[in-house]
Amino acid sequence: MGDGTVVGRRERKKAATRAAILDAAMPLFLERGFDEVTVREIADEADVSPKTVFTHFPQKEALVFSDEDERHERLAAAVSDRASGTTISAALKAHYLAEIAAMRSGPQRQILTLMEATPSLVDYAEKMWFRHEDALVVAITKDLELPEPNDEIRFYVRFALHIQLGATHEADPESAIDAGFRLLDEGWTTYHKRLSTLGIGLARGSPRLPQPE
């Protein structure tokens, strides 16, 4: 039996165990509330040990946000895969609105309700969101064809991430997102003009950085 077969089987087993833990945890959380469910109960329901639960999920809150890696990838792709002629801010605004709409409908709505009722989940979600900072910085730096990130890009990303976080809790997220990027883009446009004088950031034949609306 080749090493590849062994590794493949091991990965499938890990994925199955992870899925079983999630299948056990989420119904318990939704039925009784996050704080009322123990890791021991989840482990028993999934027929694994508490240690195994923590092997797959470093802390209890991570069970509610098992799609963190996918969210990470979608955020970076919103910049790197955007259509030609679409600014970074416009791409992020569209991405934010799509993510918020998904959270407010279907199965995700239950998770949002659970999160809003649990302070520790709100805190975890905010920290998780800002862990995406480096990936977005890299995506924008690569998009601008710069050798390395700079302060302007890092501050743009930090403020842009804050815009989504605040808009999630607004009754009219689109208005909040538009207002946030309108303010952010005023400073970002100055940076864009400075890059443009150096011939940077225009490889697609259209502005790569946000323009005032």
Results as ranks from 00 to 15, higher is better:
D143Y: 06
A20H: 03
G205N: 10
Q108C: 04
V37Q: 09
A77S: 15
S120C: 07
V79T: 13
D3W: 14
R40I: 05
A167W: 01
L184R: 03
R104I: 06
A135G: 12
P50C: 10
A139H: 12
R208N: 13
E99Y: 05
H132N: 15
D185W: 02
E186L: 10
K51H: 10
S80A: 14
R104V: 04
A101V: 03
R71I: 02
Y191G: 03
Q59R: 14
E36Y: 00
A117W: 03
S105Q: 13
R182F: 03
S120G: 02
Y191I: 05
M103N: 06
R208W: 01
S175P: 01
F155H: 10
M103K: 03
A167G: 01
A102I: 00
A203Y: 03
V37T: 12
E31L: 10
S84R: 13
S175V: 05
T190V: 10
T55P: 00
S175F: 01
L97Q: 09
D123R: 15
K142M: 08
V137P: 12
I100S: 03
E152M: 10
M103P: 00
R104N: 14
A25P: 04
A76M: 07
A117S: 15
A125N: 15
F181R: 04
R131N: 12
L183P: 00
H132T: 09
L195K: 06
M115S: 12
D35W: 00
P107I: 01
E126P: 00
V138L: 11
H169D: 07
A98S: 13
A203H: 15
A62P: 06
I163Q: 01
F155A: 07
G187W: 04
V48S: 05
T113A: 15
F130P: 03
K60S: 07
G85I: 06
A203L: 07
E186P: 00
E148S: 14
G180Q: 06
Q110A: 11
F159C: 06
P50G: 08
F34P: 07
L209F: 02
L28D: 04
I200D: 06
R12D: 09
D3A: 14
L75F: 14
V6N: 11
N150E: 11
H56F: 15
L183Y: 08
F130G: 05
P207A: 12
L202M: 14
N150L: 02
N150I: 02
A91C: 11
E126D: 13
G4P: 01
W129Y: 12
A117M: 08
P27E: 07
G205P: 12
A25L: 05
H132C: 11
E213L: 06
G2Y: 13
V138G: 04
E41K: 04
A179W: 01
L198I: 01
E99C: 02
H95Q: 13
